[in-house]
Amino acid sequence: MEHDSQIPEMGHVEATRRRFLKWLIAVLAAVNALIAGIPFLRSLLGPSVAAQKNEWSKVAAVDLLPQDSPVDMRFMAESGEAYLHNTVLRSVWVIKHSPEKISVFSPVCTHLGCYYQWNGQADRFECPCHASVFAPDGKVISGPAPRPLDTLESKIENGYLLVKWENFKAGVPTKIPVA
């Protein structure tokens, strides 16, 4: 636009003015789009407040658990997701090694999030989706699972097993909690 600063004809000034207006329109429209667009996109990228409230749930009476044999324990837990406050049925795999030592596995396969099963004859966990196989201690025996079964935090109180439910990211080699 430098050459416009010499004394121009009327037509020239008018042309410059229009070009300038077009630029201004574009810039203003872009700025407005960004001012709304960035927050709007931000809202879609996920509520970052911890929606999941992880509280201890009573899962079983320790005395009644069988020794060294995995059992699928079901329990009701309060679940908070976004604006829903529901009581949901959860399931965990529990193995009592001794009255003091109990393993609790999340029932979700670490590969892609299917619910796996216990094969009592072969003494191993098997996932029906992609045939991942896990040992009773959770280690991967075969199949596409990238990491061992996820353990859940647990404790024994007044003869009851208490478990803290958590979800973990599927398909990655490390155990990463997800909200």
Binding site: P39, F40, R42, S43, A82, Y83, L84
Partner: peptide, 20 residues
Amino acid sequence: DHAYDSLNYLRTEVPFGWLI
């Protein structure tokens, strides 16, 4: 049962939900 709650969730807990 959830219209009011879900709207308020947007307004108070979703980033920039108040703006939307």
